[in-house]
């Protein structure tokens, strides 16, 4: 818990508006942001299961909401967040094993996770609407 430091008047370290953006920094920030987005995703998934348990009318109503333009946009965002968070999560697990810290490797895998997030979401949506 914060305790006495909570309202400490000392200056904070420089934040996002100060640093020059680079890809390893962006992937770290996206990892956190996508994790927060997936909090909403978990709520949508739970709501979907509630609709499934509530019968055909409730399910059809919920799916109508999900398949509306706004619903699809949210669903695409959640899917991209899931693909990205999964890819970058594997990158983090490699780091935990002590692998992939060399700057060039970290930058390359960083770009790879960003591409995996976007590409993964497109693949999932293509499968979902063609299959």
């Amino acid at each position: 818990m914060a305790g006495p430091q909570a309202h400490d008047p000392r200056p904070l370290s420089p934040h996002l508006q100060i640093w020059r953006w680079h890809v390893t920094m962006a992937t770290s920030i996206f990892h956190r942001a996508s994790g927060v987005a997936l909090y909403v995703g978990a709520m949508i998934l739970t709501a979907w299961i509630v609709a499934l348990a509530s019968g055909p009318e409730a399910y059809a109503g919920f799916m109508g909401l999900l398949m509306s333009p706004l619903g699809l946009l949210v669903l695409f965002g959640i899917t991209a967040a899931a693909c990205y968070h999964l890819a970058n999560g594997v990158r983090h697990l490699a780091w935990d094993a002590g692998k992939g810290f060399a700057p060039k490797v970290a930058t390359a895998t960083g770009w790879a996770t960003i591409i995996a997030g976007a590409f993964g979401a497109i693949v999932v949506f293509t499968l979902a609407f063609l299959a």
């Binding site: 978990a42 709520m43 998934l45 739970t46 299961i49 509630v50 499934l52 348990a53």
Partner: peptide, 13 residues
């Protein structure tokens, strides 16, 4: 709360 709701609904289905 989400976990409890989801478990009850999966069990119901």
């Amino acid at each position: 709360i989400l976990a409890i709701i989801a478990m009850l609904c999966i069990a119901k289905v």
